[in-house]
Amino acid sequence: MEAKVRVARYDPDGNRDHHFDEYTVQLAENAMVLDALIDIRENVDETLSVRCSCRSAICGSCAMRVNGKATLVCNTPMSRVAPNGEQITVEPMGNMPVLKDLVVDLEVFWNKVKAITPWIQPEGPKPEREYIVADEHMQNLINTVQCILCGACVSDCTVLEVDPSFMGPAALAKAYRFAADPRDGHKQERLELYSQASGMWDCTHCFQCVEVCPKGVAPMDWILELRREAEAAGLKDHNGVRHSESLAHSVKESGWLDEAKLAMDSYGKFSDKLKLVPVGVRTILKGKMPKTGPFHHKRPGAEHVTRIFEELEGKHS
């Protein structure tokens, strides 16, 4: 089949402008996007730099963007991204500086992983043999260790786009793996560490990481699990906890979201609440204040919503 590929180029040794080069190569029917890139750099244009190794979606080297979305190019079939032979666009991952062409500086990524104390810390004397742990615990963790640290989720994380200090989906999914390991002896400290600013409460559940993860790890799900664990461990003095509690409370009581109250409730300290005043003023000036303003009222039929909440809460208690 004929593959038309538009590749983002950047050469720090040359004229340093970011541009695209277009290539057309002949490939086997079931070829992956990586096959196209390898064919280009081996037979057409040796100046193209690409990281790749295993070709089996296990080493995590070849994460990059195809048609705007992060993926591993080694398991992305050309037929999926160009079903009718369209030209595809290949670019380096986002949220990381480009070193050359499709190669990004991964130090940003590794530093996030390193920041979560990514090794098990058992407490007390080690058993002579293995730790006795139920297989279901291990199976649950195996879902998280499917992560190959390719960086695709970090590339497309919408929070990282505005706040580079966010721990990010990959590191937080790995964080869950340690917090939930029954052999680890520092769960509480871990949950405190991951609850800090830039941690688990900064995820906005935009689902990007779930969508792009090439291994089906769904990092966001594990971030939400971490939050449940943190709340269950009594770590409630966080804006994130107050935010989710206020949200649930307002929907339960009134049938819908009280946006103004949500903003106020989310901040614990009075001094922080005060900082919202200019935001409120700007919201009004820009015409973005909810029509009800501070006068939130119950929706008709809200009692049904309340009943659903009570039923669910009853089940959980």
Binding site: W119, I120, P122, K126, R129, E130, Y131, I132, V133, A134, D135, M138, Q139, L141, I142, V145, D181, R183
Partner: peptide
């Protein structure tokens, strides 16, 4: 193998929670 388990490897288990 035991050391690897102590280092954190998530080995599959048998019904009794031992290494499978």
């Amino acid at each position: 193998i035991i050391e690897l388990e102590h280092m954190g490897v998530i080995f599959n288990r048998d019904e009794e929670g031992r290494l499978g």
